[in-house]
Amino acid sequence: NITNLCPFDEVFNATRFASVYAWNRKRISNCVADYSVLYNLAPFFTFKCYGVSPTKLNDLCFTNVYADSFVIRGDEVRQIAPGQTGNIADYNYKLPDDFTGCVIAWNSNKLDSKVSGNYNYLYRLFRKSNLKPFERDISTEIYQAGNKPCNGVAGFNCYFPLRSYSFRPTYGVGHQPYRVVVLSFELLHAPATVCGPKKST
């Protein structure tokens, strides 16, 4: 009989979030998941669920729940959905087409922007091929755009693959930082360890 609440607040209220290319994953298990708490945590810009209804979450049980978190800019949030393409979905964080879970995003301009520009958040701009779903690539190998090998040196047709967002508070919403948490629900042929409040007794 599990009584402890799932530590969603640790994920959502973390002081620092990860850069999207090096997104963070927390496995959540053996706890009571009260998803209604999430609705009250922040004024969400996005709370979209796929393959599951957000209002039914509190009635369900899962084997595992994974919470992935990272920062992107406002106009990239739409890429965090099944079947999307674009720089983020292709080279940084890719959801599977049959994704079961929820994408939660909110504006973090007050936390993640600086007047002089916050350069701490990076994204991958160049990659030889698209990522597979939930693949994480943290390599910093020089990207070869031409025929000549780069031998690890940046220059003509040889690019450092990561680029930094420079978040400034005066930017338009599309270029402001957004914190994203992706909850993916895993149903294996194994005992369910993460249940809503109704199912945990």
Rank of each mutant, 00 (worst) to 15 (best):
R163G: 05
N24D: 05
R78G: 00
V173E: 07
P54H: 04
T193E: 10
N1Q: 06
L125K: 01
K56N: 02
S139N: 12
K148Q: 03
P197W: 04
A192D: 04
N120P: 15
N109L: 14
N120L: 10
N64I: 12
N109T: 15
R78E: 10
F45G: 05
K94R: 10
T100V: 08
L187F: 10
K128G: 06
F45N: 04
E10L: 13
K128I: 13
P54G: 13
F126S: 02
A67M: 13
V115P: 15
G146S: 01
K128C: 14
R78K: 03
F44A: 04
I138L: 00
N130V: 12
V37N: 07
F44Y: 06
V173D: 03
T201I: 05
L5S: 04
P149I: 10
S116K: 15
V115H: 15
Y119M: 07
S19D: 15
A190H: 10
P191G: 03
T15S: 10
N13T: 07
K198I: 05
A105Y: 01
K110R: 09
T100L: 09
N118Q: 15
T63I: 12
T63S: 01
E186W: 10
T3K: 06
F45Y: 02
V37H: 04
T63L: 13
G83N: 10
A22C: 13
K110H: 04
F134H: 11
F156C: 09
G196H: 05
T46Y: 04
G174Q: 08
T46D: 01
K110E: 00
Y119E: 11
Q84V: 05
N130H: 12
K114N: 15
K48T: 07
N118H: 15
E135D: 14
Q84R: 05
V37C: 10
N30E: 14
T55D: 08
V32I: 01
F62Y: 05
N1E: 00
S166P: 15
E10V: 14
L5K: 06
T55I: 04
D9S: 06
F62W: 00
R78W: 04
P54N: 12
N58Y: 08
E76H: 13
S164Q: 11
T3R: 08
D97L: 11
R16M: 08
F12L: 14
D90E: 12
N40R: 06
S166A: 05
G146A: 08
F156I: 07
F45V: 00
N64P: 01
N4F: 14
R163V: 03
G174S: 07
V65A: 08
S29G: 10
F126M: 01
R27V: 11
N64K: 09
I2T: 03
V32T: 02
R168M: 09
N147Y: 13
N87L: 01
F62I: 02
I138M: 09
E135Q: 02
K148F: 08
I2R: 01
K198G: 06
N87G: 12
R78S: 00
T85K: 02
A81Q: 14
Y35F: 11
N87M: 01
L187V: 01
V173L: 06
L41F: 11
A190D: 05
T140D: 03
L188K: 07
Y119T: 11
V32R: 05
N1S: 13
K114E: 15
H189F: 13
A154Y: 13
N58D: 02
I138G: 15
S164L: 15
K128M: 11
K48V: 13
D9N: 11
T55G: 03
N109W: 15
F160P: 00
L122T: 02
N147H: 10
R73S: 03
T15N: 12
Q144E: 11
G196W: 11
N120T: 15
L187S: 08
E186K: 04
Y178I: 14
P149S: 09
N120W: 14
F160G: 12
E141H: 07
T140K: 08
T100Y: 10
N40E: 06
N58Q: 06
N87I: 09
T201Y: 02
E10K: 07
N151V: 13
N130M: 05
N109R: 13
N4K: 06
S116F: 15
Y119V: 15
L125R: 13
N24E: 12
T55P: 11
